[in-house]
């Protein structure tokens, strides 16, 4: 009897001591969640402080918004070409496309060979780490900066743009290619090795045929990126093409209607490239 009472006492005590004082936490407060909350609070405070201290001079916020909207309306609803003709614009777009194409092709050819040595299943670990490290470093610096760096030697213009863009394309494609090479089943390489095939034969007979569709879709992806970069290069590095005309229209003539027209040109090309890319990928999936 006594023992029973004791048990009852203990259990009721624990119940009481548990229930009112502490609420049950579903999500435990770990170090990671504390850091996350701290970061969010700091960001909110910084944003509030910025808005409070921002120097807007005499610009009325509402008027500013309305003015911008008007500009956008003029730019995109009333586009026209005043300083150059339609055929000139088309020609310049072709130059920009040419720049993108050239740098992608150069980049792809060089990257194929380097990525063979960067893929861990085809090369030694040391060589792979060195090449991948270099590629990561090159990728970390934006393309525009590379172009400006090469402009020191080649002068501002198309040569610097081609070298700089190729440089960045190589490192981008090395990563893409080598990763698709690494996905190849180890056994396939082993099978060909066991039959006495050499390294180059294995690469061209097994590795590249297996990853060709990945390679083509990555290359096309880079071509699209390079087209966008080539537009910017026209303005930033004087590489010519539609980007330079856009730069002149915006900062020299201040003709926002012409900016709108050029933007439409670039948009159409970008859409065409996208459609082409989807078509190619579709074919690849069926045939290869």
């Amino acid at each position: 009897m006594e023992a029973d009472e004791k048990i009852e006492k203990i259990s009721s005590q624990t119940l009481i001591s548990n229930s009112p004082s502490k609420r049950i936490r579903i999500r435990p407060l770990t170090k990671a969640s504390l850091v996350l909350r701290g970061t969010l609070v700091v960001l909110v405070l910084l944003t509030a402080y910025t808005f409070y201290t921002i120097d807007v001079k005499d610009v009325n916020f509402v008027q500013g918004m309305i003015g911008t909207a008007k500009n956008v309306k003029v730019m995109f609803l009333e586009p026209h070409l005043s300083h150059f003709s339609f055929s000139h614009a088309l020609y310049q777009v072709m130059i920009t496309l040419g720049l993108a194409f050239l740098t992608t092709v150069f980049g792809a050819i060089i990257a194929v060979f380097l990525s063979l040595f960067a893929a861990q299943n085809l090369s030694s670990k040391r060589v792979s780490v060195v090449i991948k490290g270099f590629a990561a470093f090159i990728r970390a610096v934006p393309t525009v900066l590379w172009v400006l760096i090469f402009a020191v030697a080649a002068g501002l213009g198309s040569v610097a743009a081609v070298i700089g863009m190729t440089f960045h394309s190589i490192s981008y494609l090395i990563k893409a290619y080598s990763e698709s090479f690494e996905e190849l089943d180890k056994g396939v390489i082993e099978a060909l090795q066991a039959s006495g095939a050499s390294w180059w034969q294995i690469v061209f007979q097994a590795v590249i045929p297996s990853s060709i569709s990945y390679m083509i879709s990555w290359t096309f992806m880079r071509f699209e990126i390079n087209f966008a970069v080539a537009v910017a290069m026209g303005a930033a590095a004087g590489a010519g093409g539609i980007g330079f005309d856009m730069f002149m229209a915006s900062s020299f003539y201040y003709d926002i209607r012409e900016i709108g027209a050029v933007t439409y040109f670039i948009l159409v090309i970008a859409i065409l490239l996208e459609v082409l890319a989807t078509q190619i990928k579709k074919r690849l999936k069926v045939n290869i």
């Binding site: 095939a197 180059w200 034969q201 007979q205």
Partner: peptide, 11 residues
């Protein structure tokens, strides 16, 4: 492949 020259095998 093991019987061929590297080049012929590659292609």
């Amino acid at each position: 492949l093991g019987f061929k020259t590297t080049f012929a095998g590659m292609l």
